[in-house]
Each structure stands twice: as structure tokens, then as C-alpha cells.
Lab assay of single mutants.
Amino acid sequence: NEDWLCNKCGVQNFKRREKCFKCGVPKS
């Protein structure tokens, strides 16, 4: 499991996502 947490809103995103699904901030 290599899901990632958004640095802005803290929601968990799937590994394949390049941007946060909730707030749209790019993966860092």
C-alpha cells in the first residue's frame, strides 16, 4: 500500500493519483 496523504487537506489518495481528489493539490 503506497497510498499518499495530501499535504494540504490530509485526505488519503490512491497511489495512481497525481493530484488530490478532494482539493486538487499535486502530489509532492
Rank of each mutant, 00 (worst) to 15 (best):
E2R: 07
K19R: 08
N13F: 01
C23E: 02
G24W: 01
N1L: 09
K22E: 02
V11F: 11
G10N: 15
G24A: 06
V11K: 12
C9N: 05
Q12A: 08
R17H: 04
N13A: 01
V25Q: 12
K27W: 07
C9S: 01
N7I: 06
C9V: 00
F14A: 10
C6E: 02
G10P: 03
L5D: 15
N13R: 00
E18T: 07
C9P: 06
C6Y: 09
R16G: 13
E18A: 07
W4N: 07
K19G: 08
P26T: 11
C20W: 00
K19D: 15
W4G: 04
N7L: 14
F14V: 04
C23W: 00
K19Y: 00
R17L: 14
K27M: 12
P26V: 06
Q12S: 07
K22S: 06
P26Y: 15
C6D: 07
L5V: 15
K22Y: 03
F14G: 13
V11Y: 15
G24C: 04
E2P: 00
G10A: 14
G10F: 13
C23V: 00
E18D: 10
Q12K: 15
K15V: 07
V11Q: 13
N13P: 04
N7S: 12
N7A: 14
L5F: 14
C20A: 01
W4V: 05
R16W: 06
D3G: 06
N1A: 06
N13K: 01
C23K: 01
C9A: 02
N1V: 14
E2H: 09
V11T: 15
R16M: 01
K19V: 08
E18H: 03
G24Q: 05
S28T: 15
V25S: 11
F21H: 06
Q12W: 09
G10H: 15
V25T: 14
R16E: 13
F21V: 05
C20G: 01
C20P: 02
P26E: 12
K22I: 00
K27T: 14
C20S: 01
D3N: 11
F21A: 11
K22H: 05
C23M: 02
V25F: 07
R17I: 14
C6M: 00
K15T: 11
V25K: 13
G10Y: 14
K19H: 09
V11P: 06
E18S: 07
G24I: 03
K22T: 03
K15L: 05
F14D: 12
N1M: 15
V11L: 08
P26L: 07
C9W: 02
K8D: 12
N1D: 09
W4Q: 13
E18V: 03
F21I: 04
P26R: 09
W4K: 05
P26D: 08
C9D: 03
Q12N: 09
L5E: 11
K19F: 10
C9R: 02
E2W: 05
L5A: 13
N13I: 02
N7E: 15
D3M: 12
R17S: 12
G10Q: 14
C9E: 07
V11I: 04
C23L: 00
V25H: 13
R17P: 08
K22N: 02
D3A: 03
E2M: 15
E2L: 05
V11A: 13
G10S: 10
N13H: 07
R16V: 05
F14C: 14
K27G: 09
K22F: 00
C6T: 01
D3T: 12
Q12E: 07
N13G: 03
K27E: 10
C6S: 00
E18G: 05
Q12M: 04
K8Y: 05
R16H: 07
K15D: 04
P26K: 07
E18R: 06
E2F: 09
S28P: 15
K15P: 10
N13W: 01
C23H: 02
C20V: 01
L5P: 13
K27V: 09
K8P: 15
G10E: 05
K22Q: 07
W4E: 04
Q12H: 15
K19C: 10
Q12I: 13
C9I: 01
C6I: 00
W4H: 07
D3H: 02
G10R: 06
G24K: 10
V11S: 14
K15C: 09
E18P: 08
R16L: 05
E2Y: 09
F21S: 09
C23I: 00
N13V: 03
V25L: 09
R17Y: 14
K8N: 05
N1K: 14
Q12V: 05
G24R: 06
R16D: 15
V25G: 11
F21R: 10
K27P: 14
W4L: 05
S28C: 15
E18M: 11
C23T: 01
R17K: 07
K19S: 07
E18C: 01
R16A: 12
D3I: 10
C23S: 02
C9Q: 03
E2T: 15
Q12P: 09
V25M: 13
P26G: 10
K8M: 09
V11D: 02
K8L: 08
R17C: 08
F14S: 07
F21W: 13
V25A: 12
C9T: 01
E2A: 01
N1I: 10
K15G: 11
E18Q: 11
K27A: 11
W4Y: 06
E2C: 10
P26Q: 08
N7F: 12
K22G: 02
Q12L: 03
